[in-house]
Structure formats: structure tokens, C-alpha cells
Write a protein that binds this DNA or RNA. Sequence first.
DNA 1: TATGAATGAGCGTTCATTCAT
DNA 2: CATGAATGAACGCTCATTCAT
Lengths: 213, 213, 213, 213
Amino acid sequence: MTATTATTPRAGQQRARILDAAQACFVRDGFHAASMASIAEAAGMSAGLIYRYFESKNAIILAIIERQLRDKLDNIAKLAEDPDIARKFVDFFGRLRRGDPDVVNPALLLEIGAQATRDPQIGAAMAHSDRAAAAALGEWLRQITRARGLALDDAGIRARGLALQCLFDGLAMRAVKDPDLDPALLAAALAAVLPQLLASDPASPHSRETAEP
Amino acid sequence: MTATTATTPRAGQQRARILDAAQACFVRDGFHAASMASIAEAAGMSAGLIYRYFESKNAIILAIIERQLRDKLDNIAKLAEDPDIARKFVDFFGRLRRGDPDVVNPALLLEIGAQATRDPQIGAAMAHSDRAAAAALGEWLRQITRARGLALDDAGIRARGLALQCLFDGLAMRAVKDPDLDPALLAAALAAVLPQLLASDPASPHSRETAEP
Amino acid sequence: MTATTATTPRAGQQRARILDAAQACFVRDGFHAASMASIAEAAGMSAGLIYRYFESKNAIILAIIERQLRDKLDNIAKLAEDPDIARKFVDFFGRLRRGDPDVVNPALLLEIGAQATRDPQIGAAMAHSDRAAAAALGEWLRQITRARGLALDDAGIRARGLALQCLFDGLAMRAVKDPDLDPALLAAALAAVLPQLLASDPASPHSRETAEP
Amino acid sequence: MTATTATTPRAGQQRARILDAAQACFVRDGFHAASMASIAEAAGMSAGLIYRYFESKNAIILAIIERQLRDKLDNIAKLAEDPDIARKFVDFFGRLRRGDPDVVNPALLLEIGAQATRDPQIGAAMAHSDRAAAAALGEWLRQITRARGLALDDAGIRARGLALQCLFDGLAMRAVKDPDLDPALLAAALAAVLPQLLASDPASPHSRETAEP
DNA sequence: TATGAATGAGCGTTCATTCAT
DNA sequence: CATGAATGAACGCTCATTCAT
């Protein structure tokens, strides 16, 4: 009880140390297969000590999940300040390949998604994060499309936001399936979808093709 | 040893029964949390008997993974026969919500992706499946774009294929995050991306926007 | 679940084996200090196997408690068939000193009493056993006193039953405090209380002494 | 080493504080289940500090046990000054039900008895306390029976003393089994045994009944 | 072929105890 | 004198796997 609410600087540092170690273990082994002993070893402390700072292994998993979802939301928020999202994704792949620990880990994101279908608490956290992401993306889309002289109603914004979210999440899976993806190819792929999504008129002739099989 | 290579009809049936049971357990509990006992119970047999047909739990996981990847590949192959992929995805969501057991399970797909980063064997299987999917998609893209009067070089095909794969995988994550997604909204989102991807000229003015921030 | 309800002969034997081993460990170490490993060793099996027959250590403790309380109740029931309860108690001490495993263990009885104040389930089991014992003792008292020409109302029966129960329970504590108690001394002590309790008129002059300090 | 022998006033107060806290925890949780952390919290100090005043948790248990046995002995000594022991017991039940912390706790007494069969040190302490109690009771019995004109030899004194001890200890178990016992019923039960024990001639006709089944 | 009893290693967790501060 | 961070050895329990029947 006091464990999770301790707020001394020391406690905060220890909690951070544990979370960093846990994240490394979770990335390497998965939530379930990572043992408290391995986390303790990675954190350079005894297993028992972890319980002074976290109630249970599950609490650590949840903290990691919340941190990852928060980081992901931050990334989306930062898109608003920099409209060149294609370059953002290319950069993301580069940092991931270099093993940058601060990057949101795609394997973890996938596992979180899988767990969200089983653990209601995780599911709620993910749903909440997702709604926030959708709102942020929608607001950004409204601004950028208006700036480009495109008038979209709410439904149009939601549809394009959804498409963008699918694209983003799909890139996480891509990072897992092919971490050495050629940056130029990725850039080309993004160039093939993003422009229309951000600017073209959905009422143009092309857009009706799928509706006329 | 010979267990996994037994080829009598009986053995094949048993293996299928076990795999069906295992898949249900894996979807419900995850690879790690599903116990051999629960799989045996779901398969209506004793735990010991499973070892006559599979060397280990890991072998079952691998078989399930291969089956899921094969099913996914089949789905992609079927796209070639029916160009209305948007409707395919809407249908997919509908079947998923109705609990159709034959549909490729998104939660499993995510977990497979996560495991692929840890287990080289799974990683290889996934990479192989992914390359095959890319090839199939590429061939289909080449045909459909040519039919629409669009001449794309190899790089263009690869780029659009990659974009499509991201979109497909992103829909799996979407199914997990929001299984009750409004079909109309999904259709609109797909209508906003697919047409250009399948027909528009990548050299059009719009497509160069992201390259000129 | 099925563990506690398995009813094959084999399962019954195993359960009995575990209970016997557990009882020996509980007598030697106490409920809490006895480890599952020690019980397993005493039962000649692995610790994990115990869980096929009992849901938890607590379930074993409860089973032992219920068995002890049942045995104790049986002992009281047998008193009714043999009015020489003094000799019964002397015999009890003799068997206890000889280490007879079938005798209700006094140390265990004391620990059960202590636990009954903490665990509601144990408390309920003990209260139930105690009420049954009081009823049996009361019925026996009614018969024996009537046979001796003593007419006692309900209150009188209850009072003497209560006194008897205190005496019995006190003998358990005595067995713990002084297991080598001289049988002759015990017999004399019982001879000093039992006769009046079972036959004398409570309205006799002597009986009012404590009421007139 | 010197920890347990420190004799400054401060040290004495601290030790008392720890013992009071420990007793409350032991009553609530039992010797084994009470943790040093909970004792420290109840005592309003850190867990580490306790080790300045007691060598180990076991030393605390032993101190508590000795204190309880000493208190119990005091109670018996006080009987000598007030012959109305029946009222004493009724009072005891009343105080127990009101949660008076100064009363010897019956649950603790039972647990001490159980531990006495396992730990030789506790067994010795209990045996010593028991012998002292028997001696005090014997002396008191000698006086009270003589005052009532009853000449008892040593064997007679010992026998009645033993009977009394059983009765007392049985009341501890009674307090545990039925803490809400009706005071009137208890008084009646005591009235049914005590008078004969304290005054009647053991050679009277009734006393030979159990010897002639 | 099929069972399910049995094992043993490992899991998450607790806690008496120590010690640097 | 006093703290509470830290340890390490247990603990109760689970489960993939084996094997006699």
C-alpha cells in the first residue's frame, strides 16, 4: 500500500530503475515469461526488494503498459507540431534499429494489444489511450486539412483519422516483421497514402471506385 | 520423435482436434498462460495423450502460428479474385464480432508478432509468411493497376504493397482496440485510402507534398 | 475442484495418506510452521502431487480440524455407552503417553481453539462441534441422573453439562502441561468431582456455599 | 547481546511498548502469522529498532509467554484472598467480552499450550508456571478446607487441586468456544462443582460411584 | 491407444534479520 | 537512538512433461 505511494526521491529512483529493468525483460521475454528474478537481476537488486516499490508483478506490467501508452500518445501529440509525419516514421525505424531504449517498443505494443483482450484493466487503459489518440489525431487533421483548403465534416475527419490510426499501428507490426526495412521504401509507401489522406477531396471520382466493384 | 510425423488418418484427426482446442485456449488465455491441462480438457482427451501427437507445448504453439500465418496468406490470396477488399474487411469485422472461429484471430496475430521478436523459429516463419504475402500482394497490385491504366515500376509496386500491408495489419490492431467499430466508419476510412493506392498516379502533384515539407 | 471430489479408491487412499502425514507434521510443528514440503516428505510423495488431492494447504488444515472435531465428538458419544468416564480419561492419558496416533491430539485441539478465534470457517466448525457435544452430553446426563433418582430441569442439565465440558477440555490442557501425570492422581481428582456432578442434589446445603460468601 | 539486559528506564519502557504491541498482534494473528513489521507498526516504531531490545522474534514470543504465565499465576494467587472464585470467573468472562486488554487472553493461552509441546524452552516455562500454580492452589485449598472443618491429606489436596486446575483451564477453552456464554449458566455450572470440591468429604458414599460401574 | 498419477523445477511472494546512515 | 532499505532463504503453488498401467 505505502509501497506504491512512497514519494521520496529515493523511492522514485528505485521505481524508475525497476521499471526500466522490467521493460528490458518484458521486451526480451514477454510479460509472462519474464520472471521477477530476472527483473531483479536486471535492476541490480534482490527480488524481495522490488515488493517494497510495487505491490506485485502485475502492478509492474500495468505501470509499463501505462508508460508505453503514454509515450505513444506523446508521439502523436508531437505530430501536431510537425506535419512531416512521414519523416517521423522513417526516423522511428532508424532509432529502433539502433536499439534506442526510449522509443516505444513495437513488440511490447503488440503484446499489450493481445493482453487487452483478456485483462479488462489493460483493455480499459488501452481503450482510453486509443480514444485520446483518436481525438488528438482528429484535431490535427481538422487543422491541416483546413489549411490545405479542404472542408471536411465530422464523419470525414473520423474516417481519415481511423485510416491514419490503422496506418500507424500497422507500422508497429511492420517494425516487428521487418525491422531492417529500407527507409527509402518506407518513405515511398507513406508518400503513396498520406497526401490523399491529408488533402484530397474524398468526393473525387477515384474515391468512389471501391464502392463500384 | 515420430510423433510429429505420424501420418495415419487417425493421427491427422487427433492433431487437428488438439490444434483447434489449443487455438481456443491461446485466444482466451495467451500462449504462456494457457496450460496443457486446459488444452487437453478442451480437446476432450488426457494431457499425456497430446504428447503422442506433439513433441511439446512449444510445438503446438508453432503449429498454431504456422496455421494462422497460412490462413492469413490464404485471405490475401483470395483478395486477388475479388477486388473489393474494403467489403472484405467490413465482413471480417462482422464475423469477428459474431465470434466466428474460422476467422484469423487478431489477438493471436498480435501475440505471434510479439513472439516473433523473441523466438528465431517463429521469427523465420513470420518473415517467410510476410515475404509470401508481399509477393502475392505485389502480383495482385500489378494486375489491378495495369487494368486501371496505371503503369507502375517495381519500386512503385513495392511501395504500394507495403502501404497495403501496413493497412491490413493496422486493421488487426483496430479489431483489438475497438471490436465494435462502426462498419460504415470503417468503410469510409477504407474509401479514403484505397482508391488512390490502387489507381492514382504517384507522380501527381499531391503525392509530392510530404516530400516538400 | 475435481481434486476434492475425486472418489476413486486410489484417490481416497492418497487423501488419507496425506491427512495422516499432515496430522503428524501439524502435531510436531503446528499448522503454520509445517511446510507443504515436510508434509509431502512425510507422505512419501512430491509436494506438487498433494495439490491433486487438496486445493490448498488450508484445505488440509481444515480437513484435519474437521477430523479431530469428529473424533472428539465420537469419543463423547461413546461415553453414553459406558458410564465410567473416569476410567476413560485415565485410559486416554495412557494411550497418549504411548504415542497412539489414533487418539485425539491435545496440542492440536488447543491450536484449533486458538485458530477458531481468527478464522471464521474454523470458528464455525468448532462452534458446531461444540453444540453437538453439548447436546450429546446433555442427553446422556439426563439419562444417567434420572437413573440415579435425580430430577433435573433443563437449566440444571445445561449447567452440569457445561461443567463437564470444562472438565474435559481442561484435561486436554492438562495432557499438554503434564503428559506424565500419575494415573492414580488423575483418578482421584475425577473421583472428587464427577460423583456429585452426576448424582447429588443441587439443592443440597453444600451447593449453596459459593452463593453465600 | 546486551540488548536483552539493558536496564535503563527508557529501555524498560521500550520493551514494554514492544510487548504490548506484540501481544495485540499475537492475539489477533497468532505467533507465527504475526509479522515483525506488524508488531513494529503497532508499537509505533521501526522494525529494526525492535532488535535493539529483543534478540529475535522468538525472544518476544518467549517474553509474552512468560508474561502471560506470570499474569495467570497472579490471578491464582489472588484467589487466596477472595474465596468466591465463582464470581471471579463470571467477572473474567465479562471483562473478556468487553475486550479488556489486561485480562489473560484465552486464545493466547491455548496457543502457548500448543507451542509448549514443541519448544522445550516454552515447555519448561509452562511446566514451571504450572507447578507454581499447583502449589499455590494446594496451599489455598488446605486453608479453605481446614476452615470448613475438612481434614484432607496431601493426596486429597493434590487431587482436588488437579480437579480445580482442569476446571480453570477448561474455562479458557470455553471462553474461546463460546465467548458470549450466559453468565447465569456459568455461575450455575460452577455452583454444581465447586462446593463439593471445596468442602465435602471425599469418603462420602457418592464419591465411590464411579468405582462401581 | 489412452489415461492420469507423479515428478521436479521454477514461479511470485513474504518476512525475519542486518546494517549503513 | 532510530530508521528503513536491503537481503536471502524459505514459502505455497503451478505446470510441462514422463511413464506405468
